[in-house]
Each structure stands twice: as C-alpha cells, then as structure tokens.
C-alpha cells in the first residue's frame, strides 16, 4: 500500500512573553514522526488539551500566526509548502472537526457543505453530489435548509463526516470526533471511519478515547506532553 502522509520530525512551538520583554519558546509538539498509508486508520491518542489538534492544524496549514512549525509534512512523498497545503486542503485532504461549532451559525447546511462555487453548473453538480452523500448518511432533504443549531448531536456528526467526503478525499483527518456523544452515535461515527477505510481512504484519528481508538485503528500512537512515545499495532494493546 502506498504511503499517503509522512510527518517527519515536526515540532510546533509558540513564542510566549514571560516577564517584561523576555521571550520563551513554548514547545507544544516535539519531534513528532508518523505516517499513514491508504486504507489505514492511525489513531493518535492523548489527553485533552495536550496539543493534538495542532497536529491537524499543521497538516492543513491553519495554525495561528504566532505558531512556529518545524519539520517536514509530506503528502504522497512530496513535501508540502504552505501554498501546497492551501491547494490540496478541502480536496485531497479533509478535516472532520470536533463539533457543530465548526459550522457557520448563519449559513444553511447544504450551502456550507458545497462551499464556494464559480458557476451555476458547478453548483448544481456539487448539490447533486451533496444530496447523494447526505442521503447515504441518512440525512433527509430537510437537513439541507437547516441551520447548524437545529441539528441534533448525531445529525451534526453525520453532517460533518459527509461534508468531508464531498470532495472524494484520499486522507481524512478527524479531530476528536467522538466526545460528548452517546454510545450509539459513537458507534455510528466509528463505523463511518471503517467504511472510509474500506474505500481505501487513509484516516488520521486524533482522539483521547482509547476505546474508540482500539476499536477502529490499525495502529495507535501514544501522544504525551508533546512527544509521540510509541506507535504500535492495535494488537499490542489488547495482548492477543
């Protein structure tokens, strides 16, 4: 299987003012290396607030301005510059965000899923595609005209997942997709990722939910205080 994403020796730090004008480099991620292949689910497991999300943001080139990124992020063997990231994000690589807060509160769901279009034909084509995928995820036509605050927890999750699949991505980065959901919805969400895997999509699952990680991931990386301590096969965790 081909490698999709290589993250090599990535460090992310912030410049922080301590006393007066003294600056300090606050390292959030240190020397992180991982890789994902087609049809593979890699879980990065770490506690909340440990900076896992920044890894996702670094891949998409949406880190805050005061963040420093060192190291290489390669997609299909090619190192990505900021421009490359802007080019492929939303197309080859897509993000499944944490919560419904990541949707524009004043825009209807289908408009957001489709995104900006240049022409009417493009819009129509995308609209048809969006309807198809939404239907697949059990989201009726009424969802198209809803606003984010009207979605239930499970619906919001399905909307976020289907929004990601609209552009036929090669790689899905899911940032904490399961917290705050009931058992059934968690299961449903994890099944979505399994289906993606079967379709040959690579999934980077960033989570603090060890059960979720054990259930779907092929390999699991343990992330602790800025370091990835070890990446191991799922089997190594269960002892079978």
């Amino acid at each position: 299987m081909d490698k999709l994403l290589d993250v090599e020796n990535v460090s992310i730090s912030f410049i922080q003012y301590t006393q007066g004008l003294n600056q300090r480099d606050l390292k959030v991620i240190t020397d992180l290396t991982l890789d994902i292949s087609e049809g593979e689910i890699l879980a990065v497991l770490g506690s909340s607030g440990s900076g896992k999300s920044l890894l996702a943001h670094a891949i998409f080139g949406i880190l805050p301005e005061n963040a420093n990124l060192n190291g290489k992020i390669k997609y299909k063997g090619k190192e990505l510059s900021q421009q490359d990231k802007e080019e492929i994000r939303g197309k080859d690589i897509v993000l499944v965000p944490q919560s419904v807060n990541f949707l524009d509160p004043l825009m209807k769901i289908s408009d957001q899923a489709i995104g900006h279009t240049e022409s009417d034909e493009e819009k129509k084509a995308k609209k048809t595609k969006q309807r198809e995928i939404f239907e697949h995820y059990n989201l009726g036509p009424e969802v198209d005209d809803m606003y984010p605050f009207q979605l239930s927890g499970g619906m919001a999750r399905r909307v976020l997942v289907s929004t990601a699949l609209l552009s036929d991505p090669k790689l899905v980065v899911a940032d904490e997709p399961t917290p705050g959901l009931d058992e059934k919805t968690v299961q449903e969400t994890l099944n979505h990722f399994k289906h993606m895997k079967e379709d040959g999509i690579g999934v980077l699952l960033i989570t603090h939910d060890i059960h979720a990680a054990l259930e779907v991931a092929d390999r699991i990386g343990i992330f602790y205080s800025g370091y990835v301590i070890e990446i191991a096969l799922k089997e190594d965790f269960t002892g079978t």
């Binding site: 993000l95 807060n101 990541f102 524009d104 900006h116």
Partner: peptide, 25 residues
Amino acid sequence: SDYFLFAKARGESGWNLIVRHGIRN
C-alpha cells in the same frame, strides 16, 4: 472562530471566505 478555521480547511480562501462567512456574521 472555529467555523472560519473549518471553512479554510475545506479549501475556501481569500476574499470569498470573507464574503461568505465573515460579512454574513
């Protein structure tokens, strides 16, 4: 905001992004 970040991650950018999500809000 989170939704602006996500819109960026979905590939929207520049002035379009401001018009679609900024001005609206």
